[in-house]
């Protein structure tokens, strides 16, 4: 049954991917990429990676779709511009990259293989010891927040930096209150004088 569901979801994902390729309507493409993310999230559930599925569903299918729609609304772009005259070069690049990726998967261990390097070293220690050391049932959380706390701190800073970047590029202005806008524009003119 699980195998059948795997096939159904993967087929739906390929169909969605090809529809994204074929479509020239950008609104449709954004919605389709949201559907693709939702299918990916369902697939992660089948792979028993519920934490990843949760993130994919909320970020991939939810927020990023919304942000792409907001971007479309700002840029007034409805249709993709067609400017590729000669498709041979892109096709060669895609085929070579695809072949390299397939070649790469040949060496990969099978899914769930106990002898795979990723299932061998630290992960066994985490599974055996995290109950005694951290004492919470969700091992994913204990790895993310405690064993790999330094990484998660870095990720939080990445998200923080993203917000700062967006604020610097697009922010303050029109949604903020008028005083702030005036302040900024006066700062800019001061800068020009210098």
């Amino acid at each position: 049954m699980a195998g059948f569901l795997d096939v159904v979801i993967l087929v739906l994902m390929s169909v969605t991917a090809f529809s994204i390729l074929r479509s020239r309507n950008l609104f449709g493409v954004v919605i389709l990429s949201g559907i693709f993310s939702l299918l990916a999230a369902s697939f992660y559930v089948l792979l028993a990676a519920v934490d990843v599925a949760f993130t994919e569903a909320s970020v991939g299918a939810g927020i990023s779709t919304l942000l792409m729609l907001a971007t479309l609304a700002i840029t007034h772009q409805k249709k993709e511009k067609q400017h590729i005259n000669n498709p041979i070069m892109p096709i060669i690049v895609v085929l070579v990259t695809g072949a390299a990726l397939v070649y790469g998967t040949l060496d990969m261990p099978l899914y769930g293989d106990i002898n795979a390097p990723s299932n061998q070293y630290l992960i066994q220690r985490f599974i055996e010891q995290s109950g005694a050391e951290i004492g919470i049932p969700n091992i994913v959380t204990s790895i993310l927040a405690s064993y790999r706390g330094y990484d998660t701190l870095g990720e939080t800073f990445v998200i923080f930096t993203a917000a700062i970047g967006v604020l610097t590029l697009l922010g303050r202005g029109r949604t903020g209150n008028k005083a702030e806008v005036k302040q900024i524009s006066s700062l800019e003119t001061d800068g020009e004088k210098e």
Binding site: I63, L66, L67, A70, T71, A73, I74, T152, E155, T156, I159, F160, A162, A163, V166, L167, L170, G171, R174, T175
Partner: peptide, 20 residues
């Protein structure tokens, strides 16, 4: 801490985008 930063980031990014 992660939750507060992520929530504030998403709200900020969306409001800034949608407020253009």
């Amino acid at each position: 801490g992660v939750g507060i930063t992520v929530a504030a980031t998403m709200i900020t990014v969306f409001f800034v985008f949608a407020g253009q």
